[in-house]
Design a protein around this nucleic acid. Structure first.
Lengths: 196, 196
DNA sequence: ATAAACCGCTAACACATGTTAGTGCAAATA
DNA sequence: TATTTGCACTAACATGTGTTAGCGGTTTAT
């Protein structure tokens, strides 16, 4: 009957959500059972329900906390008075750092959102669509200003975002280069690929 | 008691595998049930087992047929007497075309292989690792020959492969540019990003 | 110290899952 | 035509699933 151990400023629910992220990443949302999660938290499955409403609630929390984090940063960067290509680079770096540091959450948000239920699902998809449109708009500005090659902006966004999700492979690989080196390499290739 | 309809030179198993690809892509392997699959084939769930051994067998078939296809092409391109950067471009174009044309299969192979069981799982992971090493070797040759920027080859591979898997978004999007335009844009950005 | 809130437990549920057994019709083969 | 094989069906099973009910102890607040 040992309680879930919490560190300072974290609720027991936080602990569960964060263990869920790890589990959902490694097995996928559907394949991860509440009994698995319970075991990794150190408790019986039914006990989880003293803290959460349902399994999907865990997915909501993960998906939307990640989405909000990126949206907020985009707001910030969009309003800075710098060239478009620098905005793109900043956003790219932020994505990379987030993917490196909050791997589990970001990965789950990226790959498992399909299993959200409406209305969360449509909501999430909308947010995502709008986010990409805003990125595309920045790129188009850069193209107008001759900072960026005249390419299809939507395609560029697609490449950027998916390349970032490739950091998953870096996380899993044995001989990792440092996170900083990874970041520089990615920026070199991707920003280099966009720049005129 | 209507039989599964087959077209010329396709077995009933082929029909099942190919419906499975569609289903696995849209719901994920775990979330797609044999009853779902049966319905999409137009038959009762139990009837599927007259043609296949198990649900995972479907995943084997999909994953390894895609993997073999790419391996074979790599063999071919590797032995051509052309500069490294051109080899990379050729492979990239091949990946793009495959992802555009055999979307379901390639996507499933890329995202759902986690749910394979040993020994298939280790096998697949090995093939994948080796494939990436071979791509990295080509890039390293290109770096030595001053065709390609001095970047970390493994990171470049990771970006290339994941960028390609982003074609998923293109498939889903409403206002698609043409497949040919997509290919050119991707090559411009990615090969451009690698080239010195 | 007493009351109240918290929280982990056992037991159980309703249901979906992959899969097997066995039956009988229809197609292919002889 | 006769026979064998192919194949779809119904029924069922064993297991894993998310989740609820209700008990009793522990921590927190009064």
């Amino acid at each position: 009957m040992a309680r879930i151990k919490t560190e300072k400023n974290t609720t027991r629910k936080d602990v569960i959500v964060s263990k869920a992220a790890i589990l959902f990443r490694e097995k996928g949302f559907k394949a991860a059972s509440m009994r698995d999660l319970a075991e990794s938290v150190g408790v019986e499955a039914a006990s989880l329900y003293n803290h959460i409403k349902s399994k999907t609630e865990l997915l909501h929390e993960l998906c939307f906390s990640v989405a909000n984090c990126f949206l907020q940063k985009l707001d910030e960067i969009e309003s800075e008075p710098i060239p478009a290509i620098q905005k793109i680079e900043k956003i790219l770096r932020f994505h990379i750092v987030e993917m490196v540091n909050n791997y589990e959450e970001v990965y789950v948000s990226d790959r498992e959102w399909k299993h959200l239920n409406d209305p969360y699902l449509s909501n999430f998809q909308n947010q995502r669509r709008i986010y990409r449109k805003r990125l595309a708009a920045i790129i188009e500005t850069g193209i107008k200003n001759k900072e960026i090659k005249p390419i299809d902006a939507a395609t560029a966004v697609l490449i950027l975002l998916h390349a970032i999700s490739g950091i998953e492979s870096w996380h899993r690989s044995k001989q990792k280069i440092t996170a900083a080196a990874l970041e520089e390499n990615m920026v070199t290739i991707l920003v280099g690929g966009l720049t005129v």
